[in-house]
Structures are given as C-alpha cells and as structure tokens.
Simulated assay, not measured.
Amino acid sequence: MTETQRVQKDYWSTETYEAAASFVPHFADTLVQSIDFKSTDRVLDIGCGDGKFTASFAPMVEYVMGVDYSPSMINTAKTLDYGGAETEFRVVDCRHLEKEPEIMNGNWDKVSSNAAFHWILKDSSTRLSTLENIFKSMKPGGTFFFEMCGHGNAPEKLTSFMFALVSHGVPIEKAEALCPWYYPSDVHMKEMLESVGFQVKQIELNPQPLQLTSTDNGGLEGFLRLIGAQMLDLLETEEKKDSAIEQMCRMLRYGTTREDGSQWITYASLRCVAIKP
C-alpha cells in the first residue's frame, strides 16, 4: 500500500468500533455535564465519529454540525436520534476547516470534541492552524470543550506496536513516522490554546485504568486492530498482520489481564474547557 492510499483509506467502521471501543463515547460524560448549554446554542462537534458522543448533548441545543474524516462513521451518525435537535453531519478533514466556509463563519456558540484530537493534531504542520481555525469559527464568548488522550496514554500499547513492527521487518524510523497519535501534556496544550487566543478555564491530565471490552472481536486484540490499523498496513500481508497482533497480545497479556480475566490499559485523559474572549 502506498502512502497516498494509506492516508485516503477509511480505517473506521461502526461494527469494529462498537466491538472494541464502545466505551469511547462516554469518555467526556463528566465534561459534558459541566457545560452550560443553552437551547439556542449552535455547536460544532469535531471528530464526531458515529454520533454517539454528539447525542449526549444534542437534545439540549438548537443545532449541531458533526464533522469527521471517516465516511463510514458519518453515515452511521446520520441514522441516530438526537432528541429533536437539528443536526447535520459532513465528511471533513478536520485539519483543514479553512476549506469549509459554513464552518468558518464565526457563528458557533460552542465547539466540542471527544477522543479525536490525539488523531487530528498528530500532523505537526497543521496543529496550530487547526486550533486557530476553531478559534476563528466561534462567537466571542463561545466555549471550546474537549477530551482527548494526553501524555502518558497507553505506553504499553505504543511500545508493543513498535516492537512488533520492527521484528516483522519494518524500519523503526518508518514505524515512528507513521505513529498516528499525539499525546500532549496539559502544560503544552494550555500554551498552544493560549497562543491562538483562547482563555483556558479548566485543563487536567488524569491517568487512570481503562477496562477493555469483552465482546467478540473486542478485548485487547480487537482494540489493537482497531486503533493500530494504519500502522499494521505497513505489513504487506494479512498473515504478517495477524502474526504482529499475536505477538503484541502475548507481550501485553500479563500486564493487562487481571485475575478475573478482564483486560485493562492505561488511559491518560486530557480534559479542557476554554473560552474565546
């Protein structure tokens, strides 16, 4: 697979996401409960995925636009019930909101995101411009709230991916270059937000254990296949991908599996609320 094909490929599907990561839409439940929503609010949800996070606040507002890079997830989002709120979902590269005039109209009361910015902000060439675009898209006094993976998130996962890929013949430089995640510290994220004009009202980094699913196609194997699909495409055959996954699961099973058979990883939650003055 060429680099262009890898970038353009949609690695997400509702079925695999539900099996391996059904807990993700609930990451920001506590954060949502802290936000003062108004019935007249217009909300932009960045990296909305399958819409289940969007559904947690949509009934409280007038209008939500959800944007995501995955056509598969957007198609699912369009099928959900949002409690009477007007909703619209679009396939958008969230690194380049400047290409979307209806987003960059300065008309958003709130901008939200859950479990997406550690993917979206990986590209260092668009990291600050993405935050700048969000700032420009909002009304003065608007609220930007999000939760993402932060510094210290699942180090065991990243180490196992690097080891398995290198042991299957991938140069470590290539594996490092294609690592799709960006896990900033709270200090660095606060600095970036303030540099584009936001006033940060709340930011916290909270490492905590996270229990993986126990459904078919879930658990540790399903989770690794889901979140590491892009890295696994560095391997040419399905046989090599299966071999790498088996190797990772064997490496991780003692550190992730508890006495009752449940599987856990380290989740470092980076949670933030910022205001556009």
Rank of each mutant, 00 (worst) to 15 (best):
E100W: 04
G47L: 10
E88R: 13
R42I: 05
L31A: 02
F146W: 15
N114C: 13
Y182H: 15
G84I: 14
M248D: 10
S22Q: 15
T30I: 02
P101R: 02
V111C: 05
G222H: 11
I203K: 01
V92A: 01
F163C: 11
L131G: 08
C48T: 08
D29C: 01
E98P: 00
T79F: 13
C149M: 12
D123V: 04
D45Y: 13
E239K: 12
T4C: 06
G219A: 06
F53C: 01
K157R: 11
M192C: 09
S72N: 15
C179M: 11
W108S: 02
K99A: 09
I46F: 08
E98R: 12
D68K: 03
V200W: 11
M138N: 01
D93G: 05
V24S: 07
M138R: 11
T257S: 02
E238Y: 09
I74H: 00
L234Q: 00
L31W: 12
K110E: 00
F135V: 01
A28M: 11
G51W: 08
N217H: 15
M231A: 03
I35C: 06
W108M: 12
E173N: 12
N107C: 09
D216C: 08
R127Q: 08
G84L: 12
C149G: 14
R6E: 08
G219K: 11
G49Q: 01
E173R: 13
E88H: 09
N114P: 04
F223H: 13
V61L: 05
K241H: 03
G66F: 07
N217S: 11
D29T: 14
E3C: 06
S112F: 14
E102L: 11
M104D: 11
D123C: 04
W108V: 06
C249Y: 00
Y182N: 12
G218V: 12
H118Y: 03
S185W: 08
N75W: 01
S269R: 15
E173G: 10
L212E: 11
P71F: 01
A229C: 02
Q199L: 09
I120Y: 10
K78C: 06
A177L: 04
R6C: 07
T87W: 05
G255V: 07
D41E: 09
E62I: 00
D260R: 04
D93A: 04
A175S: 14
T16V: 08
T40P: 01
F198A: 10
S262I: 00
K9W: 04
D109Y: 06
N133H: 12
W12Q: 13
L220K: 14
M189S: 03
E239N: 08
L97I: 02
G222L: 02
G152M: 05
Y63M: 02
I134V: 15
E236R: 03
A115W: 05
A19W: 03
V24M: 10
A19H: 06
T76N: 13
R90L: 15
D10W: 03
M189I: 00
E173H: 09
I172P: 00
H168Y: 10
W181F: 14
E15Y: 07
S124C: 03
N133L: 01
V24K: 03
E221H: 02
G142L: 03
E191S: 05
G49C: 05
D123M: 05
V7A: 14
D242I: 07
S113K: 13
R42H: 12
C179K: 14
S185H: 04
W119Y: 09
Y11C: 07
A164S: 15
R42A: 06
Y254R: 14
N153L: 00
M192S: 08
S167P: 09
N114K: 01
R90V: 07
